[in-house]
Amino acid sequence: KLLSSIEQACDICRLKKLKCSKEKPKCAKCLKNNWECRYSPKTKRSPLTRAHLTEVESRLERLE
């Protein structure tokens, strides 16, 4: 599967780190437990900047 097509777990399953069936409108866990089942939009991760990478590398060197 391509990364862009990976389905996201519902908010509660993601928060509780449960295996989500990803069914809509309610996944199996939410249906069974009568929880409100919501699927928040995916958040875009910002790409690493060179400055951040350099900072992490220098912190790693100090720890070694």
Rank of each mutant, 00 (worst) to 15 (best):
V56R: 02
C20M: 07
Y39S: 05
N33T: 08
D11A: 00
K29F: 05
C13V: 07
L15K: 10
E36D: 15
D11L: 06
C37P: 02
V56L: 10
H52F: 08
I6T: 12
C13H: 02
S58N: 13
R38A: 14
L53I: 04
R62Q: 13
A9E: 02
T43W: 02
E57H: 06
R50K: 03
H52Y: 14
P41E: 08
P41W: 05
H52A: 02
S58L: 13
S5V: 11
K17C: 04
R38H: 13
E36W: 04
L2I: 13
L60Y: 10
C27L: 03
N33Y: 09
V56Y: 09
C37W: 02
C27N: 01
W35F: 13
A51G: 05
K29W: 00
K42V: 06
L63D: 01
L2Y: 14
S40R: 06
T49P: 01
L2R: 12
C10E: 11
K42M: 10
T54A: 06
E23I: 09
C30M: 06
C20I: 05
P41C: 05
S46P: 10
K19W: 04
N33Q: 14
K19P: 05
K24P: 07
T49Y: 09
A9Y: 01
E55C: 12
A51K: 11
N34S: 11
C13D: 00
C37V: 02
K16S: 00
E7T: 10
E23L: 08
I6F: 13
N34K: 13
I12S: 07
S40Q: 08
K19F: 03
E57W: 07
L2N: 14
E23K: 10
T49W: 05
R59M: 07
C30G: 07
L53H: 00
E55W: 13
S40L: 04
K16H: 02
L15S: 11
K42A: 10
I12N: 09
L31E: 13
K19E: 04
K44P: 14
E57L: 02
C10D: 00
E55M: 14
I6P: 12
E36H: 11
P41H: 06
N34M: 14
L15R: 07
L2M: 15
E36I: 08
E55T: 12
T43M: 13
K17A: 05
E61A: 13
L48G: 07
A28W: 14
E36L: 11
N34E: 15
V56I: 05
C27G: 01
A51V: 15
K16D: 03
R38D: 10
S58R: 10
R14N: 01
E7Y: 06
E64T: 15
K26T: 10
K42N: 09
S46A: 03
R38M: 15
T49G: 00
Y39E: 06
I12V: 13
S40C: 03
A28L: 13
S21K: 03
R50E: 06
C30I: 07
S46G: 01
Q8R: 06
W35V: 14
S46E: 02
C10L: 00
P47T: 00
K44C: 09
S4N: 10
A51Y: 08
S5I: 11
K17F: 01
R62P: 09
L60W: 00
R50D: 06
R50M: 08
E23S: 13
E23Y: 03
R50S: 09
K1N: 14
P25I: 04
P41V: 07
E23P: 05
N34W: 04
R62K: 11
A51L: 11
E23H: 14
S4T: 11
S4Q: 11
E61H: 14
P47K: 05
A9H: 06
L48R: 04
K26Q: 15
L18F: 00
K44N: 08
R38E: 15
L63C: 10
E61S: 11
C13P: 01
K42P: 15
N34V: 11
I12D: 10
Y39H: 07
E36Q: 10
R14V: 01
R38Y: 15
K16E: 02
L60N: 07
R59G: 04
S46F: 02
C20Y: 05
S5K: 09
L3Q: 10
C27Y: 01
K24Q: 14
T49N: 01
S58H: 14
L63H: 04
T43R: 08
K26R: 15
C10M: 07
D11S: 05
C10P: 01
K26F: 14
K32N: 11
A9G: 10
W35T: 12
P41N: 05
L2D: 13
R38T: 15
I12C: 12
D11Y: 06
D11W: 04
I6S: 12
W35S: 14
W35L: 14
P41A: 08
R14Y: 07
P47L: 02
N34Y: 11
R50Y: 08
K22P: 05
K44S: 06
L3D: 15
S5Q: 10
C13W: 06
E7I: 11
A51D: 04
A9D: 00
T54D: 09
E36T: 12
K16V: 00
W35G: 13
K17W: 06
Y39G: 04
S5L: 12
E64G: 06
C37A: 07
A51T: 06
S40D: 02
E7A: 09
T49Q: 08
P47W: 07
R59C: 04
I6R: 05
A51W: 04
E23V: 11
I6W: 09
S46H: 04
